[in-house]
Amino acid sequence: MNLFFGKAKAKTTAKDAIYKLRETLDMLEKRQTFLESKADNELKIAKANATKNRRVALMALKKKKVFDGNIEKINGARMTIETQMMAIENANVNLETMGAMRSGAEAMKNIHGSMDINKVDATMDDIRDQMDIADEISVAISRPVGIGEDLDEDELLNELEELEQEELDAKMLETPSPAVYTPNVPRHEPERNKRIEEEDEEAELKALQASMAM
């Protein structure tokens, strides 16, 4: 504690400074609005007395000039305050960003402090080994037990070829044989022979009837 100057003044934060600047800006805006209304009123008085009372009109213009000067000063102050507020806000954003980045860096340092590259490599090697073992176990489990272990593969192939040959033979037997070409022989000769035989039989019948009649 300072015994001569009393209690030390607390540091102003960015939030407090921005809040105070906003209050001041609101006050200046209200003051400017008031002065603008006064200047407008003096202008009306000057216009109303321009031809009637030059002294009153001139006094009104002087007052308006004073009001305009104060309005100009307020505009400058407002511009300065708005610029300062923007600078403080940007600085505060930068401060928060740096704080967050610093926290992130410290967190990464703490995490990496408990890790070692050799330990990481060893862990990755263990993972690969365990994955290979799991692969081998999966293959062993999926292999059928007691099926085809003692069979001769050459013998099976020969039997398969015999079955294929039998299938081909069966298909060939089922295939219809090609039609035999038969020449178109005229049928006139057999018909003529048949007619001759019928005539001979008829002649023999008539001869028999004649002998019986005698």
Rank of each mutant, 00 (worst) to 15 (best):
A60D: 02
L61S: 06
K62S: 11
K63M: 10
K63V: 10
K65G: 04
K65W: 00
F67P: 04
G69A: 13
N70G: 02
E72A: 13
G76I: 04
G76P: 00
A77M: 08
M79S: 15
M79N: 13
I81F: 01
A87L: 14
I88V: 12
I88L: 15
I88K: 00
E89N: 11
A91T: 12
A91P: 00
N92A: 10
V93T: 09
V93E: 13
N94A: 13
N94V: 13
N94T: 13
T97G: 06
G99M: 10
G99P: 07
M101I: 08
S103L: 15
G104Y: 01
G104S: 14
G104C: 11
A105N: 09
E106S: 09
N110T: 10
I111A: 13
G113T: 05
G113C: 09
S114T: 05
I117F: 06
I117W: 02
K119I: 03
V120D: 06
V120C: 01
D121R: 08
A122N: 11
T123D: 10
D125E: 15
D126A: 10
I127G: 01
R128Y: 03
M131R: 08
M131T: 11
M131Q: 05
S138T: 09
S138P: 00
A140P: 02
A140R: 01
A140S: 08
I141W: 01
I141G: 00
I141L: 15
S142Y: 03
